[in-house]
């Protein structure tokens, strides 16, 4: 598989108020080919969204910084690129859809202006051509009467329509990589289904690589081919979707899948208590204390877990996990 996007050893650090430094992303690796979808799952505060910002090089500096690693887009390391080059990349090669479609659109401009702005900026289209492109994009995301809608303002659209406009904006320049950060959490399920269908269809047409950030394993199953599970800024497990769903290895992944009541076509009469993951995600200040960050919440934690950081280990074909349960024979580095 030739990777379009390659993230290697990515670490992001934040300066805290008391002068300490917190590693909110720690040695993250993954890669993604054109036309494929990678899901990133985890609870909030696991570094999912920070990963997206790092790829866009939008980590707020200060107090944050990308400490080390490489992010290669078609071979070019974005971490070495100039700020001017990054402005070309953002919106053009890599673009992003956010969770909240209302606040991500500027209420004082028409949606046509906002879609058009991206293409005028990146592709130097004239005002008229940009408007035509905007209409074409609105049609592509199945908005009825695009010629009319293009002159409307965000508040005149429903939540689902706004998210379609966001997608139209993100795809207007035919990016190679699309990052969708919880794109449907604010939407009703029937509208979410429409948005997912639309994303899949557009992805087939444009061959874009998609990173889908979500906490919903069902959404991952529908949309992605591969999954990365993150916890406390680290990748704890990575596998193809079906393997991950049927054979999760890391206790955190198993917890994430088992703690959610999944909709079943034929519900059983008996309903045993749900599996719980006790406690909460460590706060930013608690990161990087050594040892496996999941150990305090892990039912299977062993003596060494709070001390030594487990390495990423192969636990099956094309399936890795970072857990001492699977690399117990190796000594800590």
């Amino acid at each position: 598989m030739s990777a379009l996007l390659e993230v290697r050893g990515l670490s992001v650090e934040f300066d805290l108020k008391d002068g300490a430094v917190s590693r909110v992303i720690d040695g993250l690796n993954f890669e993604l080919a054109a036309g494929r979808t990678l899901g990133i799952v985890g609870e909030s505060g696991c570094g999912k969204s920070m990963t997206a910002l790092a790829i866009m090089r939008l980590v707020p500096v200060p107090p944050g910084r990308i400490a080390e690693g490489a992010i290669r887009l078609a071979g070019e390391n974005l971490l070495d690129a100039s700020e001017a080059r990054m402005r070309e990349v953002r919106g053009n090669d890599v673009s992003m859809i956010f969770q909240e479609p209302m606040t991500s659109l500027n209420p004082v401009y028409t949606i046509g202006d906002q879609i058009g702005e991206t293409v005028r900026l990146h592709q130097g289209l004239s005002r008229r051509d940009a408007r035509d492109r905007a209409i074409e994009m609105l049609r592509a995301v199945s908005i009825p009467a695009p010629e009319k809608r293009v002159d409307e303002y965000p508040h005149q659209l429903s939540g689902g329509m706004r998210q379609r406009v966001m997608i139209a904006m993100a795809l207007a320049c035919r990016p190679q990589v699309l990052i969708a950060d919880e794109p449907t959490t604010a939407l009703d399920v029937t509208v979410q289904a429409q948005i997912f269908d639309l994303l899949k269809e557009l992805q087939q047409q444009t061959e874009a690589a998609v990173i889908l950030i979500t906490h919903d394993m069902g959404a991952i199953a529908e949309m992605a081919q591969r999954v990365v599970v993150m916890y406390a800024g680290r990748k704890v497990e990575e596998a193809p979707v079906d393997e991950m769903l049927t054979n999760p290895k890391h206790p955190y992944t198993r917890g994430l899948i088992a703690c959610v009541p999944h909709l079943e076509a034929d519900p059983a009469l008996e309903r045993p208590p749900l599996m719980e993951i006790p406690g909460v995600v460590p706060s930013v200040a608690e990161l990087g204390r050594g040892g496996c960050p999941f150990a305090p919440r892990c039912a299977e934690a062993m003596d060494r877990c709070p001390q030594d950081m487990p390495p990423e280990t192969a636990v099956g074909e094309d399936h890795t996990a970072a857990c001492w349960l699977y690399s117990a024979t190796e000594a800590a580095a």
Binding site: V189, A193, M223
Partner: peptide, 13 residues
């Protein structure tokens, strides 16, 4: 409504 729920269950999907 039921068919709109994204599901990890291939039968449902």
């Amino acid at each position: 409504l039921l068919s709109a729920v994204p599901s990890a269950d291939p039968v449902l999907r």
